[in-house]
Design a protein around this nucleic acid. Sequence first.
DNA 1: ATCAAGATTACCT
DNA 2: GGTAATCTTGATA
Length: 203
Amino acid sequence: MISSGPTKLKREFYSQNLLLVANNLLGKILVKKSGRKYLSGKIVEVEAYHGDYDQASHAFRGKTKRNEIMFEEGGLLYVYFTYGMHYCANVVAGKKDKAVAILIRAVEPINGINLMIKNRFGREFVHEKEKYNLTNGPGKLCQAFGINRIHNGTDLTGNEIFIINQPKVKNKEIGVSKRIGITRSVDLQWRFFVKDNPYVSRK
DNA sequence: ATCAAGATTACCT
DNA sequence: GGTAATCTTGATA
């Protein structure tokens, strides 16, 4: 059997354990259809959130209107609005009624870079200083990809937003740290990133 | 009804 | 390094 090449990640991938999916999302390619074009980027930084015993999780105090997508089956996209101006995109993992999700914190742009520049800065070009400032943060990548509240609940096994399989990033290439920007359960080492990738949001 | 916090970012000194 | 911007959500200080 000859390999058919990279394929879209399926439900079975997303349904696995939270930290496994978080680690294995590194190196995979996030794709969003935008009209006739496709925007894509390699996932280089993620954070895991667990609704049961992680006080930083939106789902820690149970299901609400805002976080209900986190309680759905793995493979949906949970998008939330924060600080009055930014969207953040999360991959829901695990089984239905298990509220676990993975925040995509940074990607390395691959396709549709010109459209990302337009979405981010409202113009057709970037200054040299902005080269790594397109998608190196959770709010920035949502702006670049045009991800917003209407994408909350999108099924990643569909054709609008999905993730393409790639070889697993080796463990020795993966950096681990505390999560960024939270005030509770701060000691969990649940941030994972590709070491030395210039699109990671912080050192 | 009211209000503080927020899984952030850009711009300032 | 610090902080303003901006508005939705969830708890009720």
